[in-house]
């Protein structure tokens, strides 16, 4: 029995090593074929292309490394804002789906059903070409100004591309988060609802103070994978011309021919970013479970 288990282990290891060898071989062959060798010296050369959106000062005479950094910051910006907004939207829609109010319940249900049927790429293009580029110039209360040039919000100038990606990612991921939140809420025993209701607490307060805290352990693991999905899906920004990391890498690779190095950098960047997200969520999860275990 033990011998057989050992044999299986060795077999699995052999297959993995074989696949890895194949990959390394391909890499070497491709490197020889391009005749460039593996190197990162080109990162210091001037990029020569302009970027529409820069969080820090950037000019075409700056290096490829700086251009990629600007792209990374643009990615970070839209991912961070998307995580926050998708969470707010998802929790609200998820709570609405278990509400007493029939209108609210069907609105949230319709939102989830619709958004989950349509590919994200189509949704991004819809937000960009139909929703944002079609905007007339309308000031709202002096604080917000909408136009097809972008959105001005309290002195913050958001480009149409940024808005389309942000709204697209938020609405798409929010629908999945809504389902996760609804599942978590449903996992809380009915008796908890009856208990807070019988004490005269309102629905909203009971949801916040009684139901959601107990739903968290069921919600968090699935929420983490939605967060990672949002980060990865942000690379679709290239479809609407938002200068995220992937878009900048794409231009860089086309100009320099450094596909292997470019993709290595891309992979590493996303690995780092997603490790950060899952690390943060794991810490939060531990804190929540820790508090719950103390109460057992």
């Amino acid at each position: 029995m033990r011998q057989r288990r050992l044999l299986v282990q060795v077999g699995v290891a052999a297959v993995l090593i074989g696949l890895l060898a194949l990959l390394v071989n391909n890499l070497a062959v491709n490197l020889i074929r391009t005749g460039l060798g593996l190197g990162f010296g080109w990162l210091g050369r001037p990029a020569g292309f302009a970027l529409a959106e820069t969080a820090l000062p950037y000019a075409p005479s700056d290096s490829y490394l700086w251009a990629l950094t600007i792209g990374w910051l643009n990615s970070l910006k839209v991912i961070a804002a998307g995580l926050v907004l998708a969470t707010v939207l998802g929790v609200a829609a998820g709570a609405a789906r278990s509400s007493n109010n029939r209108l609210l319940r069907s609105l949230a249900g319709g939102y989830v059903a619709l958004i989950r049927q349509v590919p994200l790429l189509l949704q991004l293009l819809f937000w960009y070409f139909v929703a944002f580029l079609g905007l007339p110039s309308v000031p709202i209360g002096g604080l917000i100004r909408l136009s097809n040039q972008g959105i001005q919000l309290l002195g913050l100038n958001l480009s149409v591309e940024f808005c389309a990606v942000l709204v697209g990612l938020t609405v798409f991921t929010g629908a999945s988060i809504a389902e996760i939140v609804r599942g978590g809420i449903n996992a809380v025993p009915r008796g908890q609802w009856e208990a807070f209701r019988s004490l005269g607490l309102g629905e909203g307060l009971g949801l916040r103070r009684i139901v959601l805290p107990q739903a968290l352990p069921a919600i968090l693991p699935a929420l983490t994978s939605q967060y990672l999905n949002l980060a990865k899906n942000s690379t679709l920004a290239i479809a609407v011309g938002y200068a995220d990391l992937y878009a900048v890498s794409d231009t860089t690779i086309t100009q320099t021919g450094r596909a292997i190095e470019g993709f290595l950098l891309l992979l590493l960047s996303f690995l780092l970013l997603n490790l950060l997200i899952s690390g943060g969520m794991a810490a939060f999860n531990r804190a929540v479970l820790g508090r719950l275990n103390r109460s057992r």
């Binding site: 009856e194 208990a195 209701r197 019988s198 005269g200 009684i210």
Partner: peptide, 18 residues
């Protein structure tokens, strides 16, 4: 509900609160 108290078969205490 503010003037009528209720006690349930399954207690229904809030497990995450002291």
């Amino acid at each position: 509900r503010k003037r009528v108290g209720m006690v349930f078969q399954q207690f229904n205490l809030f497990p995450h609160l002291s």
